[in-house]
Amino acid sequence: MKYFVALLLSAVLFVACGDESSSSAPAPDPSEESSSSVEMTKESSSSAATKNSSSSVDGDKSSSSVKKEDSSSSVVNESSSSATPKSSSSEDVKQSSSSVVASSSSEEEELSSSSYDRTVAFKGILWRAGDYIKFVDPRNSREYYYIQIDGKDTAGKAASIKVMAENLDIGEFVWGFEDQEDDSKIEKYCYKNDTANCNNYGGLYQWAEMMQLPSRCNTESCADLIKPNHQGICPDGWRLLTYNDYYIAVHADNNKDGVKGTRSAYGFGGSNDSGFSLVGAGYNWNHSFTSLQEGTYWHYPEEQSLNGAQMSKASWQDFYSTANPVTKTLKIHGFSVRCVMVE
Rank of each mutant, 00 (worst) to 15 (best):
K61N: 13
K61Y: 11
S65P: 03
V66F: 08
K67Y: 15
K68T: 10
K68Y: 12
K68Q: 13
E69W: 12
D70E: 14
D70W: 11
D70M: 13
S71G: 09
S72L: 13
S74R: 09
V75E: 14
V75Y: 13
E78H: 11
S82M: 14
S82V: 14
T84Q: 06
T84H: 04
K86W: 09
K86Q: 10
K86S: 12
S90A: 05
S90C: 03
D92K: 14
D92W: 06
V93C: 06
Q95D: 08
Q95G: 06
S96K: 04
S96T: 05
S97H: 06
S97F: 05
S98A: 09
S99I: 08
V101T: 11
S106N: 07
S106W: 06
E108F: 06
E109R: 04
E110D: 14
E110Y: 15
L111H: 09
S112K: 04
S113K: 15
S114D: 12
S114K: 03
D117G: 12
R118G: 07
V120G: 06
A121S: 14
A121V: 01
A121P: 05
F122Q: 01
K123V: 07
K123W: 10
G124V: 15
L126F: 15
R128D: 14
R128M: 15
R128N: 13
Y132L: 03
I133F: 04
I133G: 00
K134H: 04
F135C: 00
F135V: 00
V136L: 02
D137M: 01
D137I: 00
P138F: 01
R139G: 01
R139D: 03
S141R: 03
R142S: 02
Y144D: 01
Y145D: 08
Y145W: 09
Y145C: 02
Y146H: 05
Y146A: 00
I147H: 05
I147K: 11
Q148W: 10
Q148G: 07
D150Y: 06
G151I: 03
G151R: 00
G151A: 05
K152M: 13
K152R: 08
D153T: 02
D153L: 03
T154V: 04
T154D: 15
K157M: 12
A159W: 07
A159E: 12
S160I: 02
S160N: 12
A165C: 07
A165M: 05
N167V: 01
L168I: 02
D169S: 06
D169K: 01
I170N: 01
I170W: 04
I170A: 02
V174Q: 11
E181T: 11
D182S: 11
S184C: 09
E187D: 09
E187L: 08
E187P: 02
E187V: 06
E187H: 07
